[in-house]
Write a protein that binds this DNA or RNA. Structure first.
Lengths: 256, 256
DNA sequence: CAGTTTAGTTTACGGCGTAAACGGTAAACA
DNA sequence: TGTTTACCGTTTACGCCGTAAACTAAACTG
């Protein structure tokens, strides 16, 4: 985690470069279809495995580090693709981003599993905290916020929410750009959680292969799931346009 | 897989008993929080690891075997719980079964991951075929069929479906009790896939912990997802009753 | 300069999946 | 019945894995 005004001594720069190389080599390993392992990463950097313990406390931390950075890089890709629509068109951007998210998950199932299907134990507060920093989560919540600013779709008020859920949206433990959302509008996060759950469901189902391959190929399950969310997000009248954008994205699958 | 009229020679009975013990020991290991490994399973049976190669070709096959049996056993539990409602009340049974499925996934996240989040590679036709035998899939599709028989909810006709999806529902590669569904009614399977995707999404999200723990505890995300499916399944007028059943189930979480 | 902190090494341990060669015993067959 | 065959398990071995401990050399600090 970056300090404020990092002193950036020589050593610190060196160290950060090493972290970058760890991530780089890890990403390469995964892309090559190899397993992520301390030994393989170390070897890929011309080091011995125990040396990596100067940078991560254990294997799980390596995984977390790599997962965080993969998520960051992937989100940058989706955002880049989405930015072909102007900033004041968050609905179009969301459609593109979701489609790209799915493509990424299908093209890189191992990376997807690492980032999004990596089990987080109940008690592990460190890892859970790391999760709240997830780049993709912040990106998606931000898009949802922008959509609400424009389309003003309905969301539950705080007192409509279950007390436990209310606590959760007031002090969220999920990746969410939420500070700037006024307290009384935090019901928005409930919409986010529900929408994310739906998106996560199809994409995980497809990415892990627990699904008819032909259904994956057709993209119809994903498409239908997204389209179901147009109404709750106040985008009914945008439907034809969003459908066009979505179908355009679905027609351009990644390198097969 | 059982033969027809198994000759059941002494050797074959012995062999089957060994398979049972493999599953039994594996289940115990997982329940104890240990990892599933050939060596540990072998040791737990008083054998050496290479001996297991008489029964499974490799580690992945052990996992598949155990996953299949865990799924079978778990489904039996849910079905047992659901059977407190009569056979002619499949809606109530479905509500109970879904809730129990979720409880199981929360109580045994490692087992859940093994069965439902285990990646299946594109080409691997053997494992995909095994997937079509999944007990839980058959159980849920059967319930959906029974619900349709009573409530006659709408489903897409074959020519409304995307051509690729049409193929998929006509000759399904997913676990589905489909033989008895007339060809022209196979659009039902599309409803099933969509519903399963939604259920799978929340449950996976909760089971893997990629979710605010308080939201999990409240059960509201799961509840809301299920309730969204009452209307598509023609159960609107049953809503109060189903809600009651669901809340009853949610109030009885497993051993914490 | 001396003293300390840091980044790397070597060595070692126990666990993993799995390949190969081999032995004993139970079933199958002449 | 006696011989052959098939099967179930062993031992040994290899190369991975994560990680702990002791040690060294270089870089920073005062």
């Amino acid at each position: 985690m970056p300090h404020l005004r990092a002193p950036t001594t020589r050593r610190e720069r060196q160290r950060e470069a090493t972290y970058d190389e760890i991530v780089e080599v890890s990403a390469r390993l995964l892309a090559e279809g190899a397993d992520l392992s301390l030994r393989a990463v170390a070897a890929g950097m011309g080091m011995t495995a125990p040396a990596l313990y100067r940078y991560v406390a254990n294997y799980q931390q390596l995984v977390d580090l790599v997962a965080f950075e993969l998520d960051k890089a992937a989100t940058a890709e989706w955002a880049e693709a989405a930015s072909r629509f102007p900033e004041d068109d968050p609905a179009a951007r969301l459609a593109v981003a979701c489609a790209r998210f799915r493509q990424w998950a299908l093209a890189k199932p191992r990376e997807f599993a690492l980032v999004f299907a990596n089990p987080i134990a109940e008690g592990d507060s460190d890892r859970r905290e790391l999760l709240t920093l997830s780049t993709s989560g912040h990106y998606f919540t931000d898009l949802l916020w922008q959509i609400w600013e424009i389309y003003q779709f309905p969301f539950p008020s705080l007192d409509e929410l279950d007390p436990v859920v209310r606590e959760a949206v007031l002090d969220p433990l999920i990746p969410a750009k939420a500070e700037h959302i006024p307290t009384e509008d935090r019901g928005l996060l409930w919409v986010y959680m529900r929408a994310w759950s739906a998106l996560y469901g199809v994409v995980t189902l497809e990415s892990t292969g627990h699904c008819d391959p032909r259904v994956i190929e057709s993209g119809q399950l994903f498409r239908a799931t997204l389209l179901d969310w147009l109404e709750p997000l106040g985008l009914q009248h945008e439907r034809p346009r969003i459908v066009r954008i979505l179908d355009e994205e679905l027609a351009v699958p990644g390198p097969s």
